[in-house]
Each structure stands twice: as structure tokens, then as C-alpha cells.
């Protein structure tokens, strides 16, 4: 049976596999990149099966490509469904982005223009994905480096997307900060514009300053400005399962857990304040 996701978790990364297999990592849940386990068999699936025995699981995809104008791939949905049936995750998520077109796959989370046409495409694809998986999905707000002319803001797009499809949101607080800095909007406006009731999970991560733009690298500790935004989001949304997503330059598990304790503290502060 898939549990409900609650509390504070980490992305399960290779250097810490042993702690998850043993069940000694002090986290409430784990998240993995779905595509890394959409494989026939072998050690990765064995590892995930063992870790899954110890922790509730979130499957986080990077290749569904719900923004693709030419629709979703049957084989992708079939393989994801197989993994979902095998692992019974509490949450299945992907990103508001596109990665593929005409048989080309970029393997990057590319931005969607916030137009009525794109909204129709995204909602149609989400409907199909949720039907194929037989469950509600969460979709993550991306960080972006190009802002296409559009009919609406990103938060208006997300609000309409959740209303039309019933999907939930995976709110990446770092991505809001990065995009706000890159495109010159106020993060507070973003938070005020999204439907808080739709948020099913929160990601926290770090970024670096590029030559012209902030770059979402997920290879740094969560910076103060992202903690501040997390505090604001928590005050508005209430308790939401929260995790740190560290993909590169991965520190010791203890260091990540100490960072996770900061999130626990902020969430506790906001509960008291409420």
C-alpha cells in the first residue's frame, strides 16, 4: 500500500544508499528520479526495493514532457506505470516543462510559453498521464532562463492547470527564487497567486550566480533567501511534505540532515505562529 507523504525527506542519492537500505537515515520519506529506475532489473531496482521497505517514496520524473506539442510517449507511460505498480509510491511527480519534440529528446527541462495554446496542450497531456497512471500527479514549477511572451504569468498558468486537471503542485521554492531574479517578478506575487491547497510537496535546493543569470544547479546548500521564501510559503500553505533536493556536489548524509532540521524548525515556527 502506498502511504501518504508527510514530514521531511531527502532525495535518495548513491553515496547514501547504504543508510536507506539499512533504514538508518533519519528522514520521513525518500524521493528518487523515476527514470533511473525505469529499467528491467538489477542492482538499482534491488536497492530501491529495499529502501522502499523502510521509507515512503516519491517518484520524481524528468522526462514525461507534459509541455510537448506532439503529446506523450506511450512507452514512457507504460514503463512509468510499471514502476509505480511495483513501488507503490506516495507521490508521482514531474515538471511543468517539455523535454522532447519530434523524436528529439533534450534531457533538459525546457520552458513552456504561458499561452492559452500551451495551457490546452499541457492540460491534455496531464489528463492522459493521470489516466495512464490511474492516479493524481504533482507537477513542479521550473526554474527558467528564457521568458517567452505569454498571455499569463507562470503562477496564473499553474493555477489554471491545477483547476482544469485536478493535478497537484510540487512547489520548488528555489526555482521560484531563481526565476523571480532572472525574470524580474516578485516571489511574493508568485506565492500569492498559486492555489495553496494544491501543493502536495515542497522542494528546497541551492543555486549559483552565473554571468548574467541565476542558475539552478542543485549543487549548493539552501541559501538564506530560499529559506526566507520557504518560511513565507509555509506560512501560507501550512504543513507540506518538504525535502532537500541535492543532485550534485553531494555532502555527507549528516550535513543534509542538519539542513533538513532547518526546514523542520521553520515549519514548526510557522505552525506555532498560526
Amino acid at each position: 500500500m502506498s502511504e501518504r507523504l508527510v514530514g521531511f525527506g531527502l532525495g535518495m542519492r548513491r553515496p547514501h544508499y547504504r543508510s536507506y537500505i539499512d533504514g538508518t537515515a533519519p528522514v520521513d520519506f525518500i524521493e528518487v528520479i523515476s527514470e533511473n529506475f525505469m529499467i528491467p532489473g538489477g542492482k538499482p531496482l534491488d536497492t530501491l526495493t529495499k529502501a522502499r521497505g523502510n521509507y515512503p517514496l516519491a517518484l520524481h520524473g524528468v522526462s514525461m514532457s507534459i509541455g510537448s506539442a506532439d503529446g506523450l510517449r506511450d512507452d514512457y507511460l507504460r514503463e512509468l506505470r510499471r514502476l509505480v505498480d511495483m513501488m507503490e509510491p506516495a507521490v508521482v511527480s514531474d515538471h511543468l516543462c517539455w523535454t522532447r519534440i519530434d523524436g528529439f529528446n533534450s534531457h533538459d527541462l525546457l520552458p513552456v510559453p504561458y499561452t492559452e495554446e500551451a495551457l490546452d496542450v499541457v492540460c491534455r497531456n496531464i489528463d492522459r498521464a493521470q489516466e495512464a497512471l490511474g492516479r493524481r500527479m504533482l507537477f513542479e514549477n521550473p526554474s527558467s532562463y528564457i521568458n517567452f511572451p505569454g498571455a499569463m504569468t507562470e503562477w496564473e498558468f499553474l493555477a489554471q492547470m491545477t483547476r482544469r486537471t485536478g493535478c497537484g503542485l510540487l512547489l520548488d521554492v528555489n526555482n521560484i527564487y531563481v526565476s523571480a531574479q532572472n525574470h524580474g517578478f516578485a516571489a511574493a506575487d508568485y506565492l500569492a497567486g498559486i492555489p495553496m491547497h494544491a501543493i502536495g510537496q515542497i522542494h528546497l535546493a541551492g543555486h549559483v550566480q552565473g554571468e548574467h543569470l541565476l542558475i539552478d544547479t542543485h549543487d549548493q546548500p539552501v541559501p538564506d533567501e530560499v529559506w526566507a521564501l520557504y518560511r513565507a510559503a509555509t506560512a501560507l500553505a501550512g504543513p507540506v511534505p518538504t525535502m532537500i533536493e541535492r543532485d550534485d556536489n553531494i555532502p555527507d548524509l549528516e550535513e543534509l540532515c542538519a539542513e533538513l532540521d532547518i526546514a523542520r524548525g521553520i515549519a514548526a515556527d510557522e505552525r506555532i505562529a498560526a
Binding site: 510537448s68 506539442a69 506532439d70 519534440i101 528529439f104 533534450s106 513552456v112
Partner: peptide, 16 residues
């Protein structure tokens, strides 16, 4: 520009 045209332009940029 349609979404499909934009995505094809984006692909062309990445590839070329």
C-alpha cells in the same frame, strides 16, 4: 508562433 514551431526552433538551437 505556435507551440510546435517554438519547440522545433528550440530543438534546432540546441542541436545546431
Amino acid at each position: 508562433m505556435s507551440l510546435l514551431a517554438l519547440q522545433r526552433d528550440f530543438r534546432d538551437w540546441l542541436v545546431t
